[in-house]
């Protein structure tokens, strides 16, 4: 359903050597991939490899220099309708939960933003209190959390609220930009299990951006290795050991060594 074709992105460099010259730094070059409904694609790369930039391109916030993003065959950057369609079918969960929620909103208001997005596109009115309680229950929190402020929640709880907000607009695709990286190991597993459960329940498609290979193998169907702005290897997780690119091999072997040490 989602297709990226030859995406390239560059930014204007901070340190210009001459006045009025616009040297640009290439961040992404020639990235293409396709994603089927119900899949979970992991985008794996180290810091600075362009993971988050690709997330911004997919979520419609950054127009690429060249290349196209298609959603069911409609290009999302070429027309207003395309962008509107993307907005109504996409949602996002961020890594940094401390800035993900407006600190002046109560949990109820945070969820309300997602709920009203759904109301806008479907035209039906929901009972907002009940709906926010249902969403909280769905992510494993009790309804009493609705009256709290974000700073009164723990990291894991707040990330659950963010996930509830993301599914509140009933999207088909959710972009997960390192949703678990700033949580501790135990909570990471809980959140991943929650995401898997929601995926089954709501028939979602995930794009999972991360720098940890282990979470990709735990969670995803396919993986795209991103190295210095290019997609070097796109492979199913079940066949991950057949990866050939040196960067992917190096990453894999480092994890296998670690696992070897433990046993």
């Amino acid at each position: 359903m989602l297709e990226l074709k030859n995406i390239s992105v560059s930014f204007r460099s901070e340190n210009q050597e001459k006045w009025f010259r616009t040297t640009r730094t290439q961040v992404l070059s020639d990235i293409s991939f396709q994603l089927k409904k119900g899949d979970c694609l992991g985008i794996l790369g180290e810091s600075g490899s362009g993971k988050s930039t690709i997330g911004r391109v997919i979520s419609g916030l950054l127009k690429p220099d060249s290349g196209q993003v298609f959603l069911d065959g409609v290009s999302i950057y070429d027309s207003r309708e395309g962008r509107k369609m993307l907005q109504s079918r996409m949602s996002v969960v961020f890594q940094d939960y401390t800035t993900s929620a407006n600190p002046r909103f109560r949990v109820r208001d945070i969820l309300m933003e997602g709920i009203s997005a759904w109301e806008r596109k479907s035209g039906e009115r929901l009972e907002r209190c009940k709906e926010s309680e249902r969403l909280l229950n769905q992510v494993g929190l009790s309804g009493d959390f609705a009256d709290r402020f974000p700073h009164e929640l723990s990291g894991g709880q707040l990330q659950r609220v963010c996930i509830a907000r993301a599914v509140a607009s009933r999207p088909e695709i959710i972009l997960l930009d390192e949703p678990i990286s700033s949580l501790d190991a135990h909570t990471q597993v809980q959140i991943m299990d929650l995401l898997t459960e929601l995926k089954k329940l709501l028939g979602l498609t995930y794009i999972f951006i991360t720098h940890e290979l282990t979470s990709v193998t735990y969670f995803c169907d396919q993986v795209l290795f991103l190295y210095q702005g290019t997609g070097v290897e796109h492979i199913a997780v079940s066949r991950i050991r057949e990866a050939k690119h040196p960067y992917a091999v190096q990453l894999l072997s480092s994890v296998i060594e670690l696992e070897g040490d433990k046993s």
Binding site: L61, Q87, S91
Partner: peptide, 13 residues
């Protein structure tokens, strides 16, 4: 550029 505004823009608020 805070995430909560990025989110709002992403879902078309």
């Amino acid at each position: 550029d805070r995430n909560f505004i990025q989110f709002s823009r992403c879902i078309g608020t």
